[in-house]
C-alpha cells in the first residue's frame, strides 16, 4: 500500500510536469504547425530568473512569479523576432529556426552566465517530506503534483470558456477558418506563444526545484520528453498532450521501479519501445486525427 502511494505520487508529479511541458508545445503546434524545440530554453530562462531573484534577495514567491512572467514574455519575444518572418514557410524551415534559436540561447547562457550549473537555493521549507499514510512524500513532489493539477484545471477552463481558448482549439483543426471568423493571426499566435511560455516557466520552476540547479543545457532532455509526449498524445491534440504526459511518466516510473537489475541499462531504450508499441496501435497518437490537406 505504501509502495503504491509513492508509485502513484511519483507518476502524478512527473506526469504533471511532462503534461505542462507538452501542452506548451501542443498549443504552439495548434496555431503554427511548429514543434518549438527552443521551448526547453524558456524553462532554462525561467530557472535563471528564479535564481537571480533569490540571489537579489527578492521574496521567493515574487521570484517565482517573475520567472513565470519572464518565460511568457520571452516566448512572445521569440515568436516576434525568430518565427514571425518564417511563419508561412514549410515545416522544415520552422523546425530549423527553432533549433537555431535553442542553440543560440544555450550558447548565450554558457557565455554570459556560466558553462557550469548554478545551484538554486530554494527555501528549506521545500526540502522536507510529508507523511501520507505510512509513506513519505517529498514536499517538492507534493508541490509539483498540486501545481500541475491546478494549472491543468485552469487551462481547461481557459480553453473551454474563453474566446481565445476556443480560437486556439479551433485553430488546431482549421486555422484559416478561425482567421475568417475575425481573429487576427498575429494576435492568436502571440497568445499561443504567451501561454506556451508561461507553461514553460511553471514547468521550469518545478524542474529546477526538483533538480536543485540550473545549467545552460537543462532544457534539452525535458523538451525531448515533451516532444515524445506530444507525439503519443497526437500532434495538435491538447487533451492528448496531458494524457501522453501521464502515460510517459507511468512507463518511465514503472520501468525504474520494476525492471530487473540486469535490464536496467536498457531502461530508456525499453521506454521508447513501449512508445513505439503505443504508436503502432495508434499511428496518429492517442487523440490525433488523420487529416488530409491540399498541397
Amino acid at each position: 500500500m505504501d509502495g503504491l502511494i509513492t508509485y502513484v505520487v511519483n507518476i502524478v508529479s512527473l506526469g504533471g510536469t511532462y503534461a505542462l511541458l507538452a501542452l506548451g508545445l501542443a498549443v504552439v503546434f495548434s496555431v503554427l504547425r511548429l514543434i518549438n524545440f527552443a521551448h526547453g530554453e524558456l524553462m532554462t530562462l525561467a530557472g535563471y530568473t528564479l535564481l537571480a531573484g533569490i540571489l537579489l534577495g527578492v521574496p521567493f514567491w515574487a521570484a517565482v512569479l517573475a520567472a513565470v512572467f519572464v518565460g511568457g514574455l520571452a516566448a512572445v519575444a521569440m515568436e516576434a523576432t525568430a518565427f514571425r518572418s518564417v511563419r508561412n514557410a514549410n515545416a522544415a524551415t520552422l523546425l530549423m529556426t527553432s533549433f537555431a534559436v535553442a542553440m543560440l540561447l544555450q550558447v548565450i547562457f554558457q557565455n554570459f552566465i556560466s558553462a557550469r550549473g548554478q545551484a538554486v537555493p530554494v527555501p528549506s521549507l521545500f526540502t522536507g517530506s510529508i507523511p501520507i499514510a505510512n509513506a513519505q512524500i517529498s514536499v517538492i513532489q507534493a508541490i509539483s503534483t498540486v501545481t500541475s493539477l491546478v494549472c491543468l484545471i485552469a487551462l481547461k477552463a481557459f480553453f473551454d470558456r474563453s474566446k481565445w481558448g476556443w480560437a486556439i482549439r479551433a485553430a488546431a483543426d482549421d486555422f484559416e477558418t478561425v482567421r475568417l471568423m475575425g481573429f487576427r493571426a498575429s494576435r492568436l499566435i502571440a497568445v499561443a506563444f504567451l501561454i506556451s511560455g508561461l507553461l514553460a516557466g511553471i514547468a521550469g520552476i518545478l524542474w529546477v526545484m526538483q533538480r536543485g540547479s540550473v545549467d545552460p543545457l537543462m532544457g534539452l532532455k525535458p523538451v525531448l520528453a515533451a516532444f515524445v509526449v506530444v507525439v503519443i498524445g497526437g500532434l495538435g491534440s491538447l487533451p492528448g498532450a496531458v494524457l501522453g504526459g501521464y502515460l510517459l511518466a507511468a512507463i518511465e516510473i514503472a520501468l525504474q521501479t520494476w525492471l530487473p537489475d540486469v535490464l536496467v541499462p536498457y531502461r530508456d531504450a525499453l521506454a521508447f519501445v513501449l512508445v513505439i508499441v503505443v504508436l503502432s496501435l495508434f499511428p496518429n497518437g492517442l487523440f490525433g486525427k488523420r487529416v488530409t490537406e491540399k498541397v
Binding site: G117, Q118, T127, G128, R211, S213
Partner: peptide, 30 residues
C-alpha cells in the same frame, strides 16, 4: 551536475540520513 544535486535533494527529502561520498565531478560551487 546536474544529477548529483537532484539525487542528494531526493534522498534527503525522503529522510535518508546515510553519509554520502562523491567524486571529483562534484568539486564545484554548485
Amino acid at each position: 551536475e546536474p544529477d548529483f544535486p537532484t539525487f542528494i535533494k531526493a534522498i534527503r527529502g525522503a529522510g535518508i540520513t546515510a553519509a554520502v561520498l562523491g567524486t571529483d565531478g562534484i568539486d564545484s560551487p554548485t
